[in-house]
Computed example of a mutant assay.
Amino acid sequence: MATSAFEEIVDTFAFLDDWEDRYRHVIELGKAMSPLDEALRVPATKVTGCASQVWIHPVIEGGVFRFDGESDALIVRGLIAILAQLYNGLPVADVARVDALAEFDRIGLREHLSAQRSNGLRAMIERIRQSAAAA
């Protein structure tokens, strides 16, 4: 279950044969994201379990889930951008149904992440799921 925005990422990754091109694309996705307001970079929005500094700020309006995020690492910022494409705009009840790790496997990204980055990705996904469940 993926959004149409995420399907566009899947299509782009299918076009990019070289892992270095995919890596650069992830970084570009992160650079294109709007920065998270400094006032939202607080302990309550910080994601633990990531090697980098990561903040996820969920917003639920009218039963629709979205989040904004930030990281001090370019590649992690790109992972946040991909997660945003995967989750933003979903009904809050559907967030738990998304198998984000399987979706990342579809674009061949997880196999190229270090163990620390993979743990961080799982921590971000867990924070997103917890935020939606609490709504």
Rank of each mutant, 00 (worst) to 15 (best):
R66T: 08
D68V: 01
D105L: 07
S118F: 08
L121H: 04
S131P: 10
E28G: 05
L113K: 15
A81R: 09
I80N: 07
L121K: 05
H112A: 00
L90M: 06
L79A: 05
A2V: 11
G62Y: 06
I107L: 12
A123F: 05
E70K: 14
F104S: 11
R97D: 03
T12K: 13
I75D: 04
S131D: 09
E61C: 08
I80T: 02
N119P: 04
I125W: 04
A84I: 07
D99E: 13
R127T: 14
S4E: 15
F13D: 01
A14N: 12
S114Y: 14
A5N: 09
T48H: 12
L121I: 00
A132I: 09
G62V: 09
A93S: 11
L109P: 10
R41E: 15
V95Y: 15
L40T: 05
I56T: 06
R97W: 00
A73F: 06
A51K: 10
A123V: 01
L83S: 15
H57K: 07
V26H: 00
S52Q: 07
V95L: 15
V47Y: 09
R122D: 08
A44C: 10
R122A: 10
T12W: 12
I128E: 06
A32Q: 03
A93D: 08
G78N: 01
A132Y: 14
N88C: 10
G63R: 06
R22P: 15
L109D: 05
R110M: 05
P35C: 12
A39I: 04
P91G: 01
F15P: 12
R77Y: 05
F13Y: 00
D105Y: 01
L83W: 15
R117S: 01
L16V: 10
L101P: 00
A2Y: 09
D21F: 13
V10R: 10
E20W: 00
A132S: 09
F15Y: 11
G69Q: 00
A133T: 11
E126V: 04
I107D: 09
A132F: 14
A39F: 05
I80Q: 02
F6K: 14
V92S: 03
I80Y: 06
S118I: 07
D68R: 13
G89W: 04
R117L: 04
R66D: 02
L113T: 13
V47E: 15
F104Q: 12
D99H: 12
D37M: 08
I125C: 02
V64C: 02
G63Q: 08
A5G: 03
E38Q: 14
A134E: 13
A5E: 13
G62T: 11
R66A: 11
T45K: 11
S34Q: 12
D105W: 05
R24Y: 08
D17C: 10
A93P: 15
L40I: 08
A100K: 04
T48Y: 08
L121S: 06
V54W: 04
Q130G: 05
A123Q: 00
S71T: 03
L86E: 14
M1Q: 03
D94W: 02
E111L: 09
H25Y: 10
D72H: 06
P91N: 01
F13M: 03
E8D: 12
D94I: 01
A96S: 10
R127P: 12
A51F: 10
F67T: 00
E20H: 04
L109R: 07
V47A: 06
